[in-house]
Design a protein around this nucleic acid. Structure first.
Lengths: 357, 357
DNA sequence: TATATTGATTGAAACGTTTGAATCAGTGTT
DNA sequence: AACACTGATTCAAACGTTTCAATCAATATA
């Protein structure tokens, strides 16, 4: 007896086993308001049987009926970017508080997959979507498709408020300024800068921040010491760019005592290139990064960097979409930009410039 | 008109808009075999309308009816372990081929969440489950709960065949041997070894592999040069362990020309500790890691390591559970162990020992 | 002319839940 | 004796699909 048709235990099974109706069982097991009316004894009985049989409510049937999936989709353009993990943790934390579950998909840097998964998220009836645009993210018209289905959306790492999308972003300008100020305070006056690739939205504001400090301090920035990373083809391409840059600089024999790199991977590349050329970090040259990802922390010398409050940003993103979900209507017109404050993390890769040089 | 009751476009909406019945619409849109009978013109008509309205089939309703969710659950004990990402990519690849989607959950090293999510996976009717036991994974009775619901399961990074679970694992013994052999071939005879924490299943076989090489080559291993990492409390604790170890060793003034570290993070910790003590890697001391995660690659010096074929392991895991799903019955008795071959990646952290020492 | 055969479409039940309304036996009120 | 209330339980419809069986016209076969 109790032989189940499908592989799973259902309410009907429990109804049969307990002698009560499916309704009663449902009411008890889902702890509906009505369950207060159910006799104490009955409740206990039903619960016991459910446990014995290993019952788990079918989320599909439940969601279908309740018309709510308690799911928010998370679409990462490239999950292998160390940037994503703390962010996801934050999202999970924010979602969990409200009883929501993140459903994460990794587009693996492939545009095709990205589009696919966006559809998948809609099919799985994600009630909201968070896009993690780690390193690059071309404008995509799919946002329209999401909009059409009335699903609130937020994006992390890119400002799309102009397109009506809630955006969460570190204050890149402040970050750039923080790094520049740190190097200045250490006494550096010959700072090389590696700007991010043009298509990345972080690049410009960081540069602006740097220039602001330059202006404030009266420092001069030699144009020949400003380098630009080429278009990104992968998360690790910053590393190669940095390494390549360091080699060039050493060959050109220009004077510089510090390198302000676009991000941590770039900084690590610079360290590699400098070291290969016999230049010691930080004794002969200081290097700063940006992001504060794991590799920067465990490298030797550990990289002085600008930390993005990724966890907080994740929480913020989750709260944004949850709020939009709960308020029912999401007016794209009211998309807001949320800038978080970066923090300078001083480690081993920066020091005052050597006296003799 | 066409005003949708709920937020989503449904078959009924399209039926109304097109003048055909829900059945016909369903048959066309789901490309059921019967759709061959549907008039060419009708098909086109329906498809057009569906596109216009932005229809996406409701995965919940569909799965409920079809009684298959095309989902396999992936439960990572700690997604922040860089180990996980390539693995997930592999799983995704393997699953995708069969039309399945991974549903990934991150337990964030919390046992409580792990249990929760296992339930969630069952509620979401994952047809199979892959557990990623990155760094530590206590025996849990939940496997029983999964078994009870007849869901095939595979585990990566731990051998649980004895408990009837398909297991995918790198050949740790071969890996340990590979590292030891490499150091031996370079000429090292005074090798310090940092063994993994006792509760990790990888620790013992790696040690065995090392000892095998020691025996084969006639090398001697000074017991005082063998260190044991304490219990892990986090993925980064290997780093601290390694650093701590290096300090101790330097203080004790023992003779050693190479360190064979348990994993990459430990190796990076060793490099840090040695460097702080003025010992250069690799000129004064070689260091090897294990796993080949990103930080090991971008550090300077880049760490010589033993690569686990993580992507392949992910694919293998996916195929294992898919096979079990498709074959219908999964006999725990026939759980098999799949050992993959590690690969030596020679980078910058190893070199022949200095002559004078 | 009655009867298969085919092609195109639809009816209706089912998947496992939830939930507003209904039932029904008691008990208390008028 | 009729009525209303309460407490415990159940009916039945709905959520959006899929799919077997049924319908129905039109054509081909006997």
């Amino acid at each position: 007896m109790g032989q189940r048709k499908s592989g799973h235990v259902t309410l009907l099974d429990i109804a049969h086993a307990s002698g009560f109706s499916v309704s009663t069982v449902s009411i008890v097991l889902s702890e509906a308001p009505l369950s207060q009316n159910v006799a104490e004894k009955t409740r206990g009985h039903i619960r016991t049987i459910a446990r014995q049989l290993g019952y788990h409510p079918d989320a599909y049937a439940r969601s279908l009926r309740r018309r709510s999936t308690m799911t928010i989709g998370v679409l990462a353009f490239d999950l292998s970017d160390p940037f994503c993990i703390p962010l996801m943790r934050g999202i999970q934390e924010g979602a969990h508080k409200a009883g929501y579950m993140p459903l994460v998909m990794d587009a693996q840097t492939q545009r095709r997959l990205f589009d696919n998964y966006l559809h998948t998220l809609l099919e799985r009836r994600a009630e909201g979507v968070i896009v993690i645009a780690s390193w690059v993210f071309e404008e995509t018209n799919l946002l329209g498709d999401i909009r059409k289905n009335n699903v609130p959306i937020a994006i992390v790492g890119r400002d799309l408020t102009s397109r009506g999308v809630n955006s969460i972003l570190v204050d890149n300008e402040a970050g750039g300024a923080l790094a520049a100020r740190h190097l200045y305070d250490l006494g550096h006056r010959h700072i090389a800068v590696i700007r991010g690739p043009e298509e990345m939205c972080d690049s410009e504001p960081r540069w602006t921040g740097i220039q602001r400090v330059v202006a404030e301090t009266g420092m001069k920035l030699d144009e020949k010491l400003v380098f630009q990373l080429p278009g990104v083809v992968g998360p690790a391409s910053g590393f190669e760019g940095g390494q390549c840059f360091a080699r060039q600089m050493l060959q050109s024999r220009k004077l510089f005592t510090a390198v302000l790199a676009f991000d941590d991977l770039t900084a690590l590349g610079v360290v590699r290139g400098l070291t290969e050329g016999g230049v010691r970090v930080p004794q002969d040259c200081s290097v700063t990064g940006f992001d504060d990802v794991l590799p920067a922390e465990v490298a030797t010398p550990a990289i002085t960097t600008i930390r993005q409050p990724l966890r907080e940003m994740g929480i913020e993103a989750a709260e944004r979409v949850l709020q939009a979900i709960q308020s029912g209507v999401n007016l794209p017109a009211k998309a807001k930009l949320h800038k978080t404050q970066p923090e300078l993390i001083v480690r081993m890769s920066t020091a005052p410039p050597a006296k003799q040089r």
